[in-house]
Amino acid sequence: MSDVPTLAVENLETHFFTKAGVAKAVDGVSFSVGRGEIMGLVGESGSGKSVTGFSILGLVDPPGRVVGGKVLFNGEDLIGASEQRMQKLRGNKIAMIFQDPMMTLNPVLRIDTQMIETVLAHEKVSKETARQRSRDTLAQVGIPSPEERMRAYPHQFSGGMRQRVAIAIALLNKPDLIVADEPTTALDVTIQGQILYEAQKLCRETGTALIWITHDLAVVAGLADKISVMYAGRLAEQGTIDDVLDHPVHPYTIGLLGSVPGHNTRGQRLYQIPGMTPSLLSLPDGCAFKERCEFSDAACALRQEITEPVPGRAVRCCHPQIEAAR
């Protein structure tokens, strides 16, 4: 039992069939997250992080469609699972926190309504029990006087408060897996710290697996056990958090880490990866990063396979910078 990871994504492909062509938003992504494990999913804007999250929950809307791969949740493949089955899992065993806190709560329903319904959708408990649990969870994410604030409408909350409500909703039913899409971007540092602490505690105590999507490498560094770096819908590099952050192997990861301001870079010009993200509509067969990569050569024009240049590391690059990893 324990050797089955909570979530194993294998070769996931999610494409958007638009008028301009097929956008391969997620193109052969694999990773796994075990009980109590936290995985950071990073990558620049448009690299397919959110779409990966939606694919796990079966919430990709047309013109998008999961066209290949597996999403194994406790060993059960969710791709092709019935809507009924997904409804049972969503919000109960798998929860998601959306990226935009201003848009995720229904503007005409009170906070308590939106929380209580989440409990009642999955459990036969009294409304009073559901209300109490909602209130306690709000307190847990740091909403002051939750009893009173619960009766408010979303517009009476700030963006950061709304995000905390959305986080509380995800925590309500103590799910096995939480997909958190940049959940702390709208929060100030102290609240962010509190949320990160609560998230970590939850994972350690209840064995919840957590996928933390973010731009912020500093957050991932302090929180996650492992990290997956995405570039243009594909996985660039994957490994344990310390390995990848200390000794990145993929040129893109190296560039990404180089462009993070740190203590010792003060006064210096920040490194910037040259060039721009390619259009997902016209991705090359070979490496999507080759136009921007200082190591690229003819080999990069071929289809790149995932390799393991150093133990425990998955990299999609034919010029892994192994020396740097030593």
């Binding site: 919430l59 969503r90 109960n92 995720t104 319904e117 959708a121």
Partner: peptide
């Protein structure tokens, strides 16, 4: 709207 998608992500029934 995102809040409808979020309602689905909460596992609410179609009717609700």
């Amino acid at each position: 709207q995102d809040y409808i998608k979020f309602a689905r992500a909460k596992g609410l029934s179609q009717n609700r």
